[in-house]
Design a protein around this nucleic acid. Structure first.
Length: 420
RNA sequence: GGAGACUUCGCCUAGUCUGGUCUAUGGCGCCGCACUGCUAAUGCGGUUGGGGUUAACCGCCCCUCCCGGGUUCGAAUCCCGGAGUCUCCGCCA
């Protein structure tokens, strides 16, 4: 939810942001108009209400004709108060709708344009030179690590079983991620995967992402697509001490309907309905948000270095940001079987946009309450297994274990194909 | 699944039966000031959050007693619905 004050005071900045995103500038003017209409309604209501209270207080003291006249007057006034109150409620709803229609203002420096207009900030590491690379599914099946067929049998397409060393490899990677997070002062969290509509709504996932979300009709609950949802809602309607950023690392399963992605990434576990993820989430003061964003990106790059993956970092273009983000950096790991980079992490600076709707605040130096900033970033997900298996594959189909993961795999240096 | 109790401005709490100076009591904590050689103690004052008005402040006004409706000139208080917490019973892992 955008800051109304900013829209009032600097509408041109918001219009410029809309242009960068390729979205209509008229949304800004709609919001300004709705704001004006609401304030007029509020003033009308409050004037009547104040009068009603003054007269109401005179009733107990009055008697006889005076009292009767007073009651007649206040009765009329009560009806009028009720009517204007209804107008305020309607104007409030209009204002909120107009406010929700506006995405976050993009940060300075974000590239204009859409999905393909990202800017590559850097490439790190060198893609391995592998002749005829096997893809992750073939490798995973040979290792007895991934079972797609039975995933489909049991649950349908885009489901899978991680088994044997596959399950162990994921656990190893997540433990490495959690260990790194704890070392840096993140509080590890295992979060609910089911949340109430208010939590889903508050984090903005029922807007453009609504079709992506699983809903449990009978219980009016949603399956989260990322632990960003419970971690953001965690401090909803609270006033935090943000003298230093408050940091969490949430481990949860994530569920996505993948509606509209038919035919894309149908092979293997690149795009699935359920996966696991360790997600970083920070609450901080708005003035600290850019630095925090850089810190989250550094955390991601450190993890990628530990699992020894070649990757590049892209600055995502305005049109591809998502409504809450002011800026987003993705890390994309090299996938040998595809000969290209694929997204494995994503870190967003949501500034105050998400926290405003969730009611997450802090006290500034003057003791006033201010809206906090929130940021999130990926520290490890199931999809990383794709890049790990493929980049570390050996000619015989074995897979070398990156050194950092070995302690979590009983010291194993090599995962070898199993018979059958 | 069933029954009951509860939810008040950071925490605890009075007020709810019997609607109106509740413009919400008191304690704790916190902040400021005074006193004191320091600490402590004591005294005085302040301390929910949101919104409107304002260039901003001061001030004034509105809303806020879990949430949403209703009754009434007037609701923390009465009525209806909902959420949450706790206790007990049942069922199940």
């Amino acid at each position: 939810m955008i800051d109304l004050r900013l829209v009032r005071e600097d509408p041109d900045a918001v219009r410029a942001s809309q242009r960068l995103r390729g979205e209509p500038e008229s949304a800004v003017d709609d919001l300004l108009a709705a704001d004006e209409r609401r304030r007029l309604a509020v003033q009308a209501f409050e004037a009547l209400r104040a009068e009603q209270k003054v007269l109401g207080r005179q009733v107990p003291a009055a008697a006889g004709d005076e009292r009767a006249a007073l009651l007649a007057k206040t009765k009329d006034l009560a009806a009028e108060v009720r009517r204007t109150e209804g107008v305020v409620a309607a104007r409030d709803a209009d204002l909120r709708a107009a406010q929700l229609a506006l995405p976050n203002v993009v940060a300075a420096g974000v590239p204009a344009g859409g999905e393909d207009d990202y800017v590559v900030l850097r490439e790190v590491g060198t893609p391995p030179d592998i002749a005829d690379p096997r893809d992750h599914l073939e490798l995973g099946e040979r290792l007895g690590a991934i079972d797609i067929e039975r995933g489909a049998k049991v649950s349908g397409s885009r489901f899978y079983f991680l088994r044997g060393v596959g399950a162990q490899l994921q656990l190893a990677m997540f433990q490495l991620a959690v260990a790194q997070a704890v070392e840096r002062g993140f509080v590890p969290m295992i979060t609910p995967a089911l949340v109430k509509p208010a939590s889903m709504e508050g984090t903005g996932f029922l807007g453009a992402h609504a079709a992506e979300v699983y809903r449990l009709e009978a219980d009016d609950l949603y399956l989260v697509g990322t632990s960003e949802v419970p971690l953001a809602a965690y401090h909803g309607d609270e006033i935090l001490d943000l003298s230093a950023p408050v940091r969490y690392a949430g481990w949860s399963s994530c569920f996505r309907r993948e509606a509209g992605s038919y035919g894309r990434d149908t092979r293997g576990i690149i795009r699935v309905h359920q996966f696991d993820k360790v997600e970083m989430f920070s609450y901080c003061r708005p003035e600290d948000a850019a630095a925090e964003h850089a810190a989250l990106l550094a955390m991601e790059e450190e993890m990628l270095a530990k699992v020894e993956l070649p990757y590049r970092v892209i600055d995502v273009a305005a049109g591809d940001l998502g409504s809450s983000a002011a800026r987003k950096y993705d890390c994309e790991a090299w996938v040998p079987s595809q000969g290209r980079y694929r997204e494995v992490t994503s870190t967003s600076n949501c500034t105050t946009f998400q926290a405003r709707r969730l009611g997450v605040r802090y006290r500034d130096a003057e003791g006033r309450t201010q809206v906090a900033a929130t940021l999130n970033g990926t520290l490890a997900t199931t999809r990383w297994l794709v890049a790990i298996l493929e980049n570390h594959q050996q000619p015989d189909g074995a897979v070398r274990v990156p050194a950092a993961l070995r302690p979590y795999l009983g010291g194993r240096e090599l995962l070898e194909p199993v018979a059958g």
